[in-house]
């Protein structure tokens, strides 16, 4: 067995779409505890991340905007740590509500402060 060297692997499995983004997209499925490189930073998954879903690559405070493509995609509803799954449980649209299978009714949008 060879000693692993710390370097950027060729097949990046996290896709960060703009340098200012605080989330990246998983281009492979990740179990809890698996690590992936994003440029020079190592991200350890704190949740299972399904393919195509988002993971926080910077700490996000509750009430802070989540950025993807360099644009806000909504507001965090609770604090999110690096490596946590970012989805309907901790991210809310600033536009109009998201529909889900489990909750087919619209979620009332809080008035922005």
């Amino acid at each position: 067995m060879t000693i692993p060297t710390v370097r950027k692997p060729p097949g990046g499995r996290l896709l960060c779409l703009a340098p200012t983004d605080n989330v990246a997209v998983a281009t492979a499925e990740f179990p809890i505890g698996e690590a992936a490189w994003l440029d020079d930073a190592q991200i350890t998954m704190l949740d299972p991340i399904p393919l195509g879903h988002k993971v926080a690559v910077a700490p996000i405070a509750a009430g802070e905007k989540v950025y993807k493509y360099g644009c806000p995609i909504g507001t965090a509803t609770r604090p999110i740590r690096v490596g946590q799954h970012v989805h309907v449980h901790n991210l809310k649209s600033d536009y109009f509500p998201t529909f889900t299978r489990a909750e087919p009714k619209t979620v009332e949008q809080e008035s922005p402060t």
Partner: peptide
């Protein structure tokens, strides 16, 4: 625009889904 399958695929919000198409316009 936003359908149930979108959330299963990892899209969370309307604006996130729209950004996917809007990304073609650059910045």
């Amino acid at each position: 625009s936003f359908a149930f399958g979108n959330a299963d695929g990892g899209l969370t919000t309307q604006e996130e889904k729209s950004l996917g198409a809007y990304a073609k316009s650059g910045c």
